[in-house]
Amino acid sequence: MTPLSRWREERAVFLLTVQFLTRLPVRDPDLWSPARMARIPAWFPAVGVLTGAVMAAVWLGAGALWPPVLAALLAVAAGLLLTGAFHEDGFADACDGLGGGATRERALEIMRDSRLGTYGAAGLGLMLAGRVVALAAMPPVAGAVALVAGQATSRASAVLAIATGRYARDHGTAKPVQEGVTPADLGLALGTAAAVAALALWALPPGALLAGLGGMVLGHLAMRAYYERRLGGYTGDCLGAVQQCSEVGFLLGVLAWL
C-alpha cells in the first residue's frame, strides 16, 4: 500500500468512526466495511478531541454571557447533541442491567431493553450532574482544556477495556469491534490520548493533570471490576459506562487539585 492510499484508508476509517460515534453528517455510503469497522477503536480518542473541542467552545462562549453553572450545562448538552448521547445511553443501560438483574442472564436481558429504568435514570442523572458541577467549578481555560483531554482520554479508556477484556455475549454489535483491536490500533488510541494529555499541560498544572488521570484510572477500574464480576466480560453498554466513569473521574481529579 502506497503512502497516499494508506492515508486515504486511514481517513476513511476516521470518518467511519465519526459516523459511528457522533451525529455529524458523514454521508458516504462507501465508507462502511467489516475491516474498517473493526479498526474504528483506534480513532476513538481523536473523535473525543473533536467532541471536546465543540464542548469547550460552547463552555467558553456561554461563560462570557452567563454564570458558570449555566455555561457548563450548555457545554454538556452540546456534547449530548453531538454524540446523540451515545455513551450516556450505554451507561444508563448498564446501570439498569447491573442494578436490576439478580443473575448474569437477567442483567444481560435487561441491558438489551431500550427502555429506561429506575437505576438507569438515577445513575444517568447523577453522572450528568457530576460533570456539570465539576466543570462549573473550574476556571474557564482550565475547564475548556479539561473537557478536550477528558473526552479523548476517556475514550482511550474504553478502547483499553475492549483490548484487555472479554465480550460477554455470544453476538452483538460490540463483538466485531472487540475482535478487531490490534496492538497497533491500541497503540494509536493510547498514543493519541497521551499526546492530548501532554498538550493539556499548557493550561493545567502537572499535578492537576496527574490527578485527573488518576481519577480516570479509578473510574475505569471501578466500573470494570463491577461489570466483570457480574457478567464475566463487557458488552457495548459496559463500554459506554467505562467511558462515562473515566470522564467524570478525570474531571473530578482535575478539580480536586485546582
Rank of each mutant, 00 (worst) to 15 (best):
L4A: 13
S5C: 09
R6Y: 05
R6A: 14
W7L: 15
E10V: 01
A12T: 03
L15N: 02
L15P: 02
L16H: 01
F20I: 02
T22M: 01
R23W: 01
P25M: 10
V26P: 04
V26D: 07
V26F: 07
R27M: 07
P29N: 12
P29T: 07
A35M: 02
R36Q: 07
M37E: 14
M37T: 13
I40R: 06
I40C: 06
A42K: 12
W43K: 04
W43M: 05
F44D: 05
F44E: 05
V47L: 08
T51K: 08
G52Q: 11
G52N: 11
V54W: 05
M55L: 06
A57I: 14
V58H: 09
W59T: 11
A62E: 05
A62P: 07
A62W: 07
V69Y: 07
L70H: 11
A71E: 09
A71I: 10
A75P: 14
V76H: 07
F86G: 14
H87S: 08
F91D: 10
A94L: 12
D96Q: 12
G97Y: 10
G99P: 09
G99H: 14
G101A: 10
G101V: 15
A102T: 15
T103W: 04
R104T: 09
E105S: 14
E105G: 10
E105L: 13
M111Y: 10
R115Q: 11
R115D: 14
T118P: 05
G120S: 11
A121L: 15
A121V: 14
A122D: 12
L124C: 09
R131G: 09
A134L: 09
L135F: 01
L135P: 04
L135G: 04
M138E: 02
P139Y: 00
V141T: 11
A144D: 08
V148M: 02
T153G: 00
S154W: 00
S154L: 03
R155S: 01
S157W: 00
A158I: 02
V159D: 06
I162L: 15
G165D: 03
G165C: 03
R169E: 04
D170L: 06
A174E: 06
A174D: 05
A174K: 03
K175S: 07
P176Y: 02
Q178L: 10
E179L: 13
G180Q: 08
V181H: 05
V181E: 05
V181S: 12
V181R: 08
A184Y: 01
D185N: 13
L186I: 12
G187V: 09
L190K: 06
L190Y: 03
A194K: 11
A197M: 11
A198P: 12
A208Q: 05
L209M: 13
A211L: 11
A211W: 09
G212C: 02
G215S: 05
G219I: 00
H220A: 01
R224K: 06
A225T: 13
Y226T: 14
R229N: 15
R230E: 07
G232F: 10
T235N: 09
G236M: 08
G236K: 04
D237E: 15
C238H: 13
L239R: 07
A241P: 15
S246V: 03
V248A: 02
G249D: 06
F250V: 12
L251Q: 01
L251V: 04
L252R: 05
G253M: 00
G253Q: 00
W257G: 00
